[in-house]
Design a protein around this nucleic acid. Sequence first.
DNA 1: GCCGTGACGATTC
DNA 2: CGAATCGCCACGG
Length: 105
Amino acid sequence: MGTTETFFERVWSVAAKVPRGNVTTYGALARALGSPGAARTVGWAMRAAPAGSRLPCHRVVNATGDLSPEEAFGGPDVQRSLLESEGITFDSQGRVDMKRHLWIP
DNA sequence: GCCGTGACGATTC
DNA sequence: CGAATCGCCACGG
């Protein structure tokens, strides 16, 4: 079969399924793809995601619930605003409330 | 087919 | 809780 799709494309495919109002982690996506140790590669896929792909990459955070670095989105503040718009709450440490919004494929 | 890279994860101090 | 370290895996050159 012409499965020329790379690991990246698979990541985007699953990341696009994250329900609105929820978030997932890089490690969770990696596990869903069968590579639990490829969390870093998942992060790469997000960074390599083409702009305007409608990929909800702002719903992907790390295991600690921390947001993306400054170089992405134009700043964590932007990402945080997007998440708050979807009803996502944060703790006093500025991290996503994983207990309430963590979603695993 | 080896080397460097990186939006991570878990552990340790 | 915060900072630092090691390991892991896929991609590009």
